[in-house]
Simulated assay, not measured.
Amino acid sequence: MNSKKVSCEEVIKSNEFTSADAALKLLISHKMKKNSDSTLEENAQNELQKLEVCIQDLEEGIESLYRRLIKTRVSLLNILNH
């Protein structure tokens, strides 16, 4: 059950990366054509903010996993020593 939740979250995260990438590419293509559109800039900024939140969530998840791995390692070493 948890694996489905994780895979669903991974799809959402990859969509955030894809959305931010598409918004930036669109903004760059308009800048190259010398077109200035504030809505494109706002959209790119919003997508980057969403991406930042996703990256922060990933970092927190990795930190939590790292702490659990350390606790597990300590427990295993304690078992081996006794």
Rank of each mutant, 00 (worst) to 15 (best):
M1E: 11
M1F: 15
M1S: 11
S3T: 12
K4I: 08
K4N: 15
V6Y: 06
V6W: 03
V6R: 05
C8Y: 14
C8S: 14
E10C: 10
V11M: 14
V11A: 10
I12W: 07
I12V: 13
S14Y: 11
S14E: 15
S14I: 14
S14T: 13
N15H: 10
E16F: 15
E16C: 12
F17N: 02
F17E: 12
F17C: 08
T18D: 15
S19A: 13
S19V: 07
S19F: 09
S19K: 13
S19P: 02
S19W: 08
A20N: 02
A20I: 08
D21V: 04
A22S: 13
L24N: 09
K25F: 08
K25E: 12
L27K: 06
L27R: 00
L27N: 02
I28Q: 04
I28K: 06
I28Y: 10
I28F: 03
S29V: 04
S29Y: 02
H30K: 12
K31F: 00
K31L: 05
M32H: 06
M32N: 10
K33Q: 07
K33F: 04
K33V: 04
K34T: 03
K34V: 05
N35E: 08
S36G: 03
S36Q: 09
D37Y: 07
S38C: 01
S38F: 02
T39S: 13
T39R: 09
T39P: 04
L40Y: 06
L40T: 05
E41K: 07
E41G: 08
E41P: 06
N43Q: 14
N43D: 11
A44P: 03
Q45D: 08
Q45E: 10
Q45A: 11
Q45C: 04
Q45T: 14
N46Y: 05
N46V: 03
E47T: 01
E47M: 02
E47I: 01
L48P: 02
Q49K: 13
Q49L: 15
K50L: 07
K50E: 15
K50F: 10
K50R: 03
L51N: 00
L51P: 00
E52Q: 15
E52H: 10
E52L: 15
V53L: 13
V53R: 08
V53P: 07
C54P: 00
C54L: 08
C54Y: 10
I55F: 06
I55M: 00
I55H: 07
I55T: 01
Q56G: 02
Q56R: 12
D57S: 14
L58M: 11
L58A: 15
E59S: 09
E60Y: 05
E60F: 08
G61C: 03
I62G: 00
S64Y: 01
S64H: 10
S64E: 14
L65R: 05
L65C: 03
L65T: 02
L65D: 06
Y66S: 12
Y66M: 14
R67L: 14
R68D: 15
R68F: 01
R68H: 15
I70R: 05
I70D: 08
I70C: 07
K71P: 01
T72Q: 11
T72I: 04
R73M: 12
V74A: 09
V74D: 10
V74R: 08
S75Y: 09
S75G: 07
L76D: 03
L76T: 06
L76A: 09
L77T: 03
N78W: 09
N78M: 11
N78V: 05
N78C: 01
I79R: 15
L80P: 00
L80T: 01
N81G: 09
N81E: 14
N81D: 13
H82C: 01
H82I: 06
H82F: 09
